[in-house]
């Protein structure tokens, strides 16, 4: 709520100009169709779809892993959980840099592919992987996978094994037991993980900055730039508020649908 002063300071006055700009309109433009600029709306939309896709992929990858760990012998479980957590010991930014090394045109992945192609005598042009939406997605999935594995593992591990036996006893094979018993009882873990992943992905800017470059600008990057580069904190604040409200709406809608804190006592 305020306006940017010519010197970069803030004039404190009530105005909705910044929100109008975010919607892609000019405050003093009389014909909305003529001066509509989809830039910010598309950034918001991109952030939303990326967060959605990341969360979905993370769930699909984390669930089998968590299931595997929860079903492993007690002694092995700790080792597996340790392996899940190890990457978190290094700095977030360093891990993203590692992906840059892997995805670069002269990076490790292209190196291996080139070598393989050479082995079979095939022509090879290095793939352009870095600075693409795909790279950002890969980075996001990688960064946030542990935050999904842990809550799902916890909820799976809490399920009383006699429930599996009861299901089998009543005529359910392994697949039916999974759909009717295991999955519903582990939903609290999936919901918690979704919240732990979706919200930070919506707001992050490091991954998209480093792996997406100028190609993938998210609302996080937009906000960061308003504060640090463009020196327009009022517009940045407006964008933050929109991000918050958007995240809140999605989260509330989601938890209404799948339940959160709906206590499931197992056993």
């Amino acid at each position: 709520m305020g306006r940017r002063a010519p010197d970069g300071g803030v004039i404190f006055t009530f105005t909705l100009d910044n929100y109008i700009r975010l919607l892609g309109l000019q405050p003093d433009c009389l014909n909305p169709l003529a001066c509509f600029d989809p830039l910010y709306v598309s950034i918001l939309w991109r952030s939303l779809t990326l967060a959605f896709n990341t969360t979905l992929i993370v769930i699909l990858m984390a669930y089998p892993l968590a299931y595997f760990i929860a079903r492993a012998p007690q002694k092995r479980r700790n080792t597996y959980l340790f392996l899940v957590l190890v990457p978190l010991w290094t700095n977030f930014v360093i891990r993203v840099y590692a992906w840059m090394m892997l995805l670069r045109t002269q990076g490790a992945i292209n190196g291996v592919l080139g070598w393989l192609a050479g082995l079979f005598g095939m022509p090879f042009t290095p793939l352009e992987m870095l600075y693409t939406p795909g790279a950002v997605l890969v980075g996001m999935v990688y960064e946030f996978l542990p935050f999904m594995i842990l809550p799902i593992y916890t909820s799976l591990e809490k399920i009383d094994p006699s429930l599996y036996e009861a299901a089998a006893d009543l005529g359910a094979n392994a697949l039916k037991t999974f759909w009717r018993v295991t999955l519903p009882l582990s939903m609290p873990g999936v919901v918690a993980g979704t919240i732990l992943v979706f919200i930070p992905v919506m707001g992050t800017f490091v991954v998209s900055d480093l792996l997406g470059g100028k190609q993938v600008i998210l609302v996080g990057n937009l906000i960061q730039r308003q504060f640090l580069d463009a020196r327009d904190p009022t517009f940045g604040s407006a964008a933050s508020l929109v991000l918050m409200v958007l995240t809140l709406i999605v989260t509330v809608f989601y938890t209404r649908k799948f339940g959160f804190g709906k206590e499931i006592v197992v056993g």
Partner: peptide
């Protein structure tokens, strides 16, 4: 396997499905 045997078990811990109603529990089998 258990699901192919003509016997059913009442477990000591009951092993009821907590996410299902009484009706759904009984209907499951």
């Amino acid at each position: 396997p258990p699901f192919q045997r003509k016997v059913n078990t009442v477990f000591q811990s009951y092993a009821l499905f907590q996410h299902m109603t009484v009706f759904e529990n009984v209907a499951f089998g």
